[in-house]
């Protein structure tokens, strides 16, 4: 597992005519677990926390490093090592069909066109997407799209996978498919979610509140903490 280190990270967004808005405030953490879940309310800063991990957001102060590489200084290398899957697969899949999108991911890693096609085919088969690969991404179901986006990101074999609320747009069945797929991956996975069941799949849970890490510990305790934070009883009534 890569050692992910956040050291005193502050992120401030400058707004026109108004004082800067602090999104993350002096966050420090070291993540080495295979599955880390991040939960928190909308606007708590958890998306920003995830975006720091592959250099999409640069810290205003402090540093973020993945396996010793700084996300600002070694941005390109970090992006090759950290795959990022967004909530909405439609903004992520840039090509009209899944196969073309997977091949686009592979464009740097393979010399010849036929090598690339073969590698794309094997990735698609691994996720059971072989028969859907040549359909327009619009004709796929939400779950199929999310899997396609995942396949395109995993095609280049990143060491770390970041998932930003991966189940928010999925129905119950597709959510279950996603959970099973993710649990079968070898990669280190860091994900944010509102889905407390998904959070329980993690080995460690961080609760983000008001730009700070408010809780850091076991998933069960983290979920209970978050429920209380939202004014709900720590355990759902059966």
């Amino acid at each position: 597992m890569s050692r992910i280190e956040l050291d005193g990270v502050t992120v401030a967004v400058s707004l026109e005519d108004r004082p800067d808005k602090v999104v993350l405030d002096g966050v420090s953490a070291t993540l080495t677990e295979r599955r880390v879940g991040i939960i928190g309310a909308n606007g708590s800063g958890k998306s920003t926390l995830l975006r720091l991990l592959n250099g999409l957001v640069e810290p205003t102060a402090g540093t973020v490093s993945i396996g010793g590489m700084d996300t600002v200084r070694d941005g390109r290398a970090v992006r090759r090592q950290v795959g990022f899957v967004f909530t909405d697969p439609l903004s992520q899949l840039v090509m009209p069909t899944g196969r073309e999108d997977v091949e686009l991911s592979l464009r740097r890693s393979h010399r010849s066109r036929s090598e690339r096609a073969a590698a794309a085919q094997s990735v698609l088969d691994r996720f059971g997407l072989g028969t859907l690969a040549d359909q327009s991404v619009y004709e796929l179901s939400g779950g199929e799209r999310q899997l396609m986006a995942l396949a395109a990101v995993l095609a280049v074999d990143p060491e770390v996978l970041v998932l930003d609320e991966p189940s928010t747009l999925l129905d119950l069945r597709n959510r279950d498919l996603l959970r099973r797929t993710v649990s079968g991956l070898d990669q280190q996975v860091i994900f944010s979610t509102h889905d407390l069941e998904l959070a329980l799949d993690a080995e460690r849970v961080l609760v983000v509140d008001g730009g700070r890490i408010a809780f850091d510990g076991s998933p069960a305790a983290g979920v209970a903490y978050y429920r209380e934070l939202c004014g709900l009883p720590a355990r759902p009534r059966a």
Binding site: R76, R80, V94, V153
Partner: peptide, 17 residues
């Protein structure tokens, strides 16, 4: 908003590097 999300996804995948 859609363009920005797409741009962000491109950047995340290192496709515009």
């Amino acid at each position: 908003a859609y363009g920005r999300r797409t741009g962000e996804a491109l950047a995340a995948r290192g496709l515009a590097d």
